[in-house]
């Protein structure tokens, strides 16, 4: 078995108004992959495919060493999946759900359930219909985590959570990572959560993978440089310039291939460097999406 927990190869799926075209995705065992995309980018469709809930029209899907087109049932025992669409029985209590899941999954961890109930501040006797949105999300997560799955797939796990519940959720996700062969894929449009937790990041937009790299590389390669330069000087010949904003002698240039020679290059154009700034993952994401759309 390879040490990839997830491997999607050239996955395609067509709908009348939307196409997933040639999606490639890799998640190494023991790490966290963040899937970022605008609404309607294809995140949930991709997740449904890798969960075996949807059979793609083309491509290969391997999850935990299983071909999802042939052995989805085997893989599913080892995958914990939570998404907003998942509904619990509203007239039943959380405890009822816990007992039910325990009867299905042999690896069920009772002591972990106790810990999670305390940490998430949940009441097992309470009926699902009486829970707030945040409590429901946490209840769902508890039911998935207590199975101790090898792979966690979470569609928008922190969306709609208050700051306290969000921190509790992030903490539990990181606790999972203590174990070296467990992996997490989570999707979000909250780039801050992904920036904090992910080892690797895949941006998707309009059904395509825009870019995919380890997080530190993303953050390392993008820089905004403030310079002072003759306003007549043409900067267009410089490679890897993503954006240039100029007003008089002041210019702000953004690059996606930053290194020391980029600075030397700017100096060669007669620029003096005022500052070099890092970009947040959110800024990088927006710029990546715009530049990929512009290139069509």
């Amino acid at each position: 078995m390879s040490n990839l927990a997830i491997e999607l190869n050239n996955v395609c799926q067509s709908y009348s108004h939307f196409n997933l075209s040639g999606i490639n995705l890799e998640l190494e065992a023991g790490s966290i992959l963040g899937l970022i995309g605008p609404n309607g980018a294809g995140k949930s469709t991709t997740i449904r495919i890798l969960m075996g809930l949807l059979v793609p029209q083309g491509g290969n899907v391997q999850v935990l060493g299983h071909d999802m087109l042939k052995e989805a049932a085997l893989a599913k025992w080892k995958i914990g999946f939570a998404s907003e669409d998942m509904r619990l029985y509203k007239n039943m209590s959380l405890q009822w759900h816990i007992d039910y899941m325990k009867s299905l999954f042999p690896g069920w961890d009772d002591s972990y359930v106790k810990t999670l109930i305390k940490r998430f501040d949940l009441i097992p006797e309470q009926k699902i219909k009486g829970l707030s949105h945040g409590q429901r999300v946490k209840a769902n997560l508890l039911l998935v985590l207590a199975r101790r799955p090898k792979l966690l797939v979470l569609d928008e796990p922190t969306t709609g959570l208050d700051p306290v519940a969000r921190q509790e959720t992030l903490r539990e996700l990181m606790d999972v990572m203590m174990d070296e062969d467990r992996s997490i894929l989570f999707s979000s449009h909250n780039t801050q959560d992904i920036e904090q937790l992910s080892d690797k990041i895949t941006f998707i937009d309009r059904g395509r993978v825009v870019n995919s790299k380890d997080k530190e590389t993303f953050l390392e390669e993008w820089r905004r440089v403030r310079i002072e330069i003759d306003s007549e000087k043409d900067l267009n010949s410089i490679n890897h310039l993503v954006d240039v904003k100029r007003s008089g002698r002041v210019a702000v240039v953004t690059t996606n291939k930053f290194n020391e020679s980029f600075i030397q290059l700017l100096k060669g154009f007669g620029a003096s460097i005022s500052s070099v700034e890092s970009l947040s993952l959110e800024e990088i994401f927006v710029a990546e999406v715009f530049s990929s759309r512009g290139g069509e």
């Binding site: 023991g30 790490s31 606790d175 990572m177 203590m178 070296e180 904090q196 992910s198 530190e216």
Partner: peptide
Amino acid sequence: IREFAVTLKVSVIT
């Protein structure tokens, strides 16, 4: 590295 990442709630790669 892993222990530290979990405590700080940041990714292993960081």
